[in-house]
Design a protein around this nucleic acid. Structure first.
Length: 192
DNA sequence: TATAAGATTTACT
DNA sequence: GTAAATCTTATAT
């Protein structure tokens, strides 16, 4: 079943980031449906987080989406060529968001292959930009409600028993100084 | 108006 | 290991 919008209205963005692991992310782009189990997330805690675009209550055309009510997407272009997918959380005017960094492909894998031009199943979704490319996510999906039939998240009761949740510091944000060390990154890993 | 840097990936040396 | 690709935003002149 799909996650209700109320799921995303909590102020505790870190808890949501952790809880999203194992949920299934769906996209429906041009009638092509793909999905995957969310395997890696990062929390971005709005105005108090130096790594966030909204740090210090910074409000621009780009970050405007983050200030809206939770339960929608925030897609933005990084390095001029990579689309990154975030899930906006918390109430209006609280710019919290969860960055989806990785998925385990579940359905529509052949479509993902075509989109990414890859021949092997490896490296299809082990990075935020590659994942977006595989799922067909672009800035066209920015500020899209998760019940818009273009993108949504379901709780498909993926069994987490065989996995452990690893918590660590976030990646690629060295400029954020001490906030770069916060344990806001969550990922699923096979138990050994 | 101009310049610098970025929540990255890929290819090449 | 290093660099290129490539564009939007933010900060500066």
């Amino acid at each position: 079943m799909r996650l209700a919008q109320s799921y995303f209205l909590s102020d505790n963005v870190v808890a949501i980031a952790r809880n999203l692991l194992g949920k299934e992310l769906f996209t429906n782009i041009d009638g092509k449906i793909c999905s995957g189990i969310i395997s890696e997330t990062e929390a971005y805690e709005g105005i108090t987080d130096k790594a966030s675009h909204a740090y210090g209550n910074r409000r621009t055309k780009r970050t405007e989406t983050m200030y809206k009510e939770g339960g929608r997407t925030y897609v933005y272009l990084c390095y001029g060529m990579h689309h990154l997918l975030n899930i906006v959380t918390a109430k209006e005017n609280t710019p919290h968001a969860v960055l989806i960094r990785g998925i385990i492909p579940n359905s529509g894998i052949d479509i993902m292959f075509k989109r990414t031009n890859k021949k092997k199943l490896t490296n299809i979704s082990n990075g935020p930009a590659k994942m977006s490319k595989a799922l067909g996510i672009t800035t066209d999906l920015d500020n899209t409600l998760l019940d818009d039939n273009k993108i949504w998240i379901e709780d498909s009761n993926f069994p987490l028993s065989g996995f452990e949740i690893i918590v660590g510091k976030r990646i690629g944000i060295d400029y954020a100084q001490e906030d770069a060390l916060l344990p806001y990154r969550f990922l699923l890993a096979n138990k050994k």
